[in-house]
Write a protein that binds this DNA or RNA. Structure first.
Lengths: 140, 140
DNA sequence: TGTTAGTTAGCATGACTTGTTGATAATCAG
DNA sequence: CTGATTATCAACAAGTCATGCTAACTAACA
């Protein structure tokens, strides 16, 4: 994701208004590695700006997603999560605490075998599931 | 997934009754590589057994899933899909026609880099997205 | 054959997400 | 600064997917 200041300029160029709500969301996402859901992002935003609506958070996330500034990742665990990291990366999910971490896999492109001839792969998504060190430590 | 006859025996052993509805679903899933949703499976089932309820399809799929006889895969495209193939395999999804194919990746376990120390990986899910040969041919 | 479990219809709920409306308020260009 | 445009908000609704509930009927299995 671009830095908040760049996003401000970019939004203005595109004819979008730069509102305090949007700027807040830019800042909350900047460098955020927590992979928040729209709901959790809303909760944090509401602490700094009481009155902001969940609707606006969804709206701004959709705009950022359409601009390719955030990635939305669906781990099949209910809500969609948002990731300001738009590099070619993958995810590690702790089944105990639910934390999601970014990881890089360098063996891509992967080879596969199956009953599929001539399939053109555009993207590969990998999700590793397991238990993070902290959770393993706590349960031990 | 076990063959329908084996499932019949297994259900009886577990104290589950072997109803025509359940047997129909066993047969519809057996060797099924279409990765149906509960809804699509229900539609096919209803053709052969008018009156069967969607509720029963969901119910039976949950039972099979709990027994490890089917895998439920969430591709983030709305409904959960069911796969009677419970091997260690991955999926290829055509973004045009929506078809899902099973594929095998033999480079596992994959190596990854990131800010994660001591994470114990239990499972890896890989989804390849792109366009299948038929769709590429049609659009050309 | 009788007990038990399954099925069905219908209605409800729940989570997540998006749409709508109408009023208010803020942004930005000129 | 001002006016036109757009965003926001609140409140409500809808849609999808999945599951829970009841009550009545039916079927399976011992």
């Amino acid at each position: 994701m671009k830095a908040p200041e760049e996003l401000v300029a970019h939004f203005r160029e595109q004819g979008y208004k730069v509102t305090p709500q949007r700027q807040l969301i830019f800042r909350l996402l900047n460098g955020n590695t927590a992979h928040p859901t729209a709901e959790t992002l809303y909760e944090v935003a509401a602490q700094q700006m009481p009155g902001i609506s969940l609707r606006t958070v969804y709206q701004t996330l959709s705009e950022l997603s359409a601009m390719g500034e955030v990635q939305h990742i669906d781990l099949g665990s209910g809500a969609v999560r948002f990731d300001p990291n738009v590099d070619d990366h993958h995810h590690l999910v702790c089944g105990t605490c639910g934390a999601v971490h970014d990881v890089y896999v360098n063996q891509t492109p992967l080879h596969f075998e199956g009953d599929v001839e001539g399939f053109a792969v555009h993207s590969t998504r990998i999700v590793f599931s397991g238990e993070c060190a902290q959770c393993a430590h706590l349960s031990a």
